[in-house]
Structure formats: C-alpha cells, structure tokens
Design a binder for these strands. Structure first.
Lengths: 104, 104
DNA sequence: ACATCATATCGTAATACCGCGATATGTCAA
DNA sequence: TTGACATATCGCGGTATTACGATATGATGT
C-alpha cells in the first residue's frame, strides 16, 4: 500500500467527502435501492451515478475520482449489470489508520 | 486543521520521510549537537541544513518543504540565532490519527 | 560596518492535477 | 440487431506542484 498515493487521493476535498459518505451508504444514498436484475445485498455498495449526483460533479469526473480511490486501495468495486458499485475497503482504511497512528 | 491540506503535505515522499525522521532526531540527525550560542535542549528540533543534507535536496526545496509541513500544522518551528529548528507537532499528528482512525 | 553563514523568498521550466465535454465500451431490453 | 442506459476513457485548457538556482533577509562575530 503506497501511503504517498493514498494521501494524494485524500488531498482532494470531494474525494475525501465521497469516502466519508460511503461510511453510511443507506443514509447518504437513499435512492440506492434495488436496481433491476441485481442482487439486493450489495454490502452497501453505491453506483457511480448516485455519487455523481450527490457530489454535483460530472460523470467523467466521478468515474475518475472513484478510480483514483480504488487504485490506491481505499475503495473496492464490483460490477453488476450496467452498474459499478463502489464500497469502502475497511481493511485498507484500517491499515492507513494504523500507519498514521503508529509509524507516522 | 484542514485535513485536505494535511494530506496534500503528506502526499510527497520526501516530506513524509522528513516527518518520520523527526520521530527520532537523535538517531537520524546525529550531527545536530550544540550549535554555538544556542541552548542545548531544543526538544529534538532539527535545523534546515541537516534535513537538506539527509534528504539530498536543495536548500530552497528543504526550506519550502518544511514550510508546507508547518503551515498545515504538522511541524513547529523555532528560531535560535541563525538556525531555524523544526520539530514534530505531536498534538496535530495525534489529531490526524484520531481523524483517520475515527471520522474517516 | 563588514563578511559570513543559515534560512527565506523569488522567478523559472517541467511536469502533474483538475474537471469537463466528447466519445468509446459494455450491458440489458425489446 | 438496434436503442437506451451506465460507466470508462480520451483529449483538452487551466491551474497547481515540483525542484531548482539566484537572490534577499536576518543573525553572528570581528
């Protein structure tokens, strides 16, 4: 896990906000209920469009931001039909917390 | 404390390294002993020149990096004679750790 | 006052990031 | 297979970051 890359990902206010919104997807993305033909339990995963709307950014920017957060390991993604669901990688976030709270 | 600004400061490998070196100044900057006319107890503060040498960067870059780390609160500086001594702001680092370990 | 040393600031070219619209890819429904 | 939809990628202009040398500021000793 490249800490430098991770910190860079978090140095953008919108990306930081997205990560925090995903702590409580049900509260922050209420419209995220049951897309057709998709299993109901997505473990709190949220699709790109919902994040795009909530953050008020363009679709391409949303996609790119989520990619940045995923490539440094903070998010996990899963495709179901036409949607890509993103959720927090709690393990990576815990590792980051251990680093900041200990080695840093 | 602006977390976004703090993460940006930490997104540079050299700056991150400097902050970690300053955890143990005696080990990492052994030459930092007693400048003339300066009180001996600097609470582990290290001057710009030592950091410049250790990191292998130019003087202006060292000064600027330390300024970035100080402006986001991670470092504290104190001038004694011609030297400016930098040391970690453990309180700010603890606050960052609380944020990453809790709110993030 | 002067020279010297440590640090800060300025100006710079190269590079990276930002956020977007346009377009490409992939998926489903008919 | 065609159309509609969700997401990914491309290309762009604007802006910020990077790291440096040159220069300015500030402190010390003579």
């Amino acid at each position: 896990m490249d800490m430098t890359e991770t910190f860079k990902a978090l140095s953008n206010p919108t990306r930081l906000q997205i990560l925090m919104w995903l702590k409580d997807p049900e509260a922050n993305f209420p419209e995220q209920g049951g897309h057709p033909g998709v299993p109901d339990d997505l473990k709190g995963g949220v699709c790109v469009g919902s994040i795009r709307d909530k953050a008020g950014i363009s679709q391409s920017t949303a996609s790119q931001y989520l990619d940045v957060l995923q490539r440094c390991g903070l998010l996990l993604s899963e495709r179901h039909g036409k949607w890509t669901y993103f959720r927090r990688n709690e393990e990576a976030i815990a590792e980051l917390a251990r680093f900041v709270g200990g080695e840093l």
